[in-house]
Design a protein around this nucleic acid. Structure first.
Length: 260
DNA sequence: TGCCAGGCTTCAC
DNA sequence: GTGAAGCATGGC
């Protein structure tokens, strides 16, 4: 059992932040977290500490990187302009939300399915595809060989061929979690997939590759930029971590609308 | 019941 | 390059 104090971590908000779709709640303060073929049981014992049921080695090798625990999120928050009342409020509301570093394939598949979709339905489709809440994430080999009709039956609708195509290219191009690539090249590469556009490509860069300059613009974020930034976010002030701010704003906006 | 959803492709202009 | 239509289907 791991017991650790973490200065900036809120499991409940992370689970509701729309970056992962397979976390399950257990009781009031517990979560089962499937990732990288393993399942972690994690409990938030108070606002600054957690318990997790894994070995110290697995904690260090798998879960600390996945939860991005070596990154100083307080410093990101402290850098927010005092003049930016909206972003300050989003930081307060999103306090404890870290940007998960997920497996590349899981991120690709999850966010291909997410397009023009709602979060409960994304979760349901992934549950069906993976075969259970704690099952390993469906692998690209399986998706590549599954019939399009079967994928449609999992609730993917018109996204079924997009996912199948992505699985085949992932395999053909020999992708893996070790992929090392810059943001510009990654955006161009993933946008070249049939069914992946600018938004999903940025989700892959941010959550799957840990490129924190990626800034996924979905309908919520576009609305925020319209209403609070005259349509243009000040990326220049937040070089290297604008994607983290995007995560807090996304969560905050949905919280205000009663959706988080 | 109708609108919406962590958008994208296609086609007209 | 920009804008609108069409897409599947459950959630609210």
């Amino acid at each position: 059992m791991i017991r650790e104090e973490i200065p900036f971590f809120n499991a409940e908000k992370i689970a509701r932040s729309g970056q992962c779709f397979r976390w399950q709640t257990v009781g009031d303060d517990g979560y089962t977290i499937p990732a990288f073929g393993k399942v972690l049981r994690l409990r938030q014992t108070n606002p600054w500490s957690i318990e997790a049921d894994c070995t110290p080695n697995e904690w260090k090798q798998v879960w600390r990187p996945y939860l991005d625990l070596d990154c100083d999120y307080e410093a990101y928050g402290a850098s927010i302009s005092q003049q930016d009342a909206y972003l300050q409020a989003a930081f307060q509301a999103g306090w404890g939300i870290r940007v998960l570093h997920q497996s590349l394939w899981e991120t690709m598949a999850s966010f291909i399915i997410s397009q023009n979709n709602n979060i409960p339905r994304i979760q349901k489709s992934l549950l069906t595809l993976c075969g259970g809440p704690e099952a390993a994430f469906v692998c690209p080999e399986t998706v590549a060989e599954t019939s399009e009709d079967t994928l449609r039956a999992a609730g993917l609708g018109y996204r079924a061929p997009y996912l199948q195509n992505a699985a085949r290219r992932y395999l053909q191009d020999g992708l893996s979690d070790d992929l090392s690539i810059g943001l510009g090249e990654a955006r161009r590469y993933f946008s070249s997939y049939f069914g992946i556009g600018p938004k999903v490509a940025d989700c892959i860069c941010l959550y799957g590759l840990g490129l924190k300059d990626a800034f996924p613009m979905d309908v919520w974020v576009k609305r925020i930029l319209r209403n609070h930034y005259q349509g243009v976010f000040p990326f220049g002030q937040y070089e290297g971590y604008a994607g983290v701010l995007q995560q807090w704003m996304f969560y905050y906006e949905r919280l205000l609308e009663g959706r988080a």
